[in-house]
Amino acid sequence: MVIITPAIRILDGVGGGLMFLGEIIRTLRKYKIDREAILTQIYNISMASFFTTASSGFFVGALMSVQFNMQLRQFGALSVLGGLSTSATVRELGPLLIAFMLSGKVGAYTSAELGIMRVTEQIDAMRCLGTNPMQYLVAPRFLGIIISAFFLLFLGLLMSILGGVILATLVADLSPSEFINTIPMYVEGHSVLSGLFKCLCFSVLLATVCTYKGYTTTGGAKGVGKTVLATALATMVGLVLLDWFTTYLAGVLLDTWRAITI
């Protein structure tokens, strides 16, 4: 019983989330979504996460320069530092980092916002006034989070290259041009594609979890607090699992691609 009850609860949550995602996709196909509402969401989300993403991107780039420097020095392979750390950012760290930052800032905020609208009956009122809340509230937020994620990924990537360059100059005695020149050698098309694919998966997960949890809040002000906590935990664990899954999937796809091209 100790394991079964939580397991059922988790399955229930996952199933509910997937059904909600289906509902969102149906809404997106069936109704026209107000473009201004999406733009407002993109603006809010990007502005809210701008500084956190930029600063964390910078420090991650710097961190990798320091860490890789220690390891590569042993092999005298310092010259590949730029390509290697950028490749790691594009393929893995960047998407994950953006997802973590967004889940903290936007995920928690969106679920709290929708949760408050739910418990104060604003969502019911909206339905009574002849508006579909899925179309008016959920869909713009969903699209906003996904589109902003790509914008922020680009920003985080630039900042991590900047951080990497600065630290590489400081600790590894590499000139910025040496650092940047190796990037195209190691960052190939499929790396970029797999990074973008991951970013898409993560942002869809994040957008689904926070809108789902927020939209289905019950139980007053306390319920909103619970929702935010559940969102934070579910996105964190979900991201790690999805990261494993997409890495695996990307590996399989890459192998197939290679097999086809050769």
């Binding site: 928690a108 679920s111 709290a112 408050i116 002000a221 909103v224 607090g225 935010v228």
Partner: peptide
């Protein structure tokens, strides 16, 4: 104060 406050401070 308020439900919004808890959400915001958690964020």
């Amino acid at each position: 104060p308020g439900a919004e406050g808890v959400g915001r401070s958690t964020t």
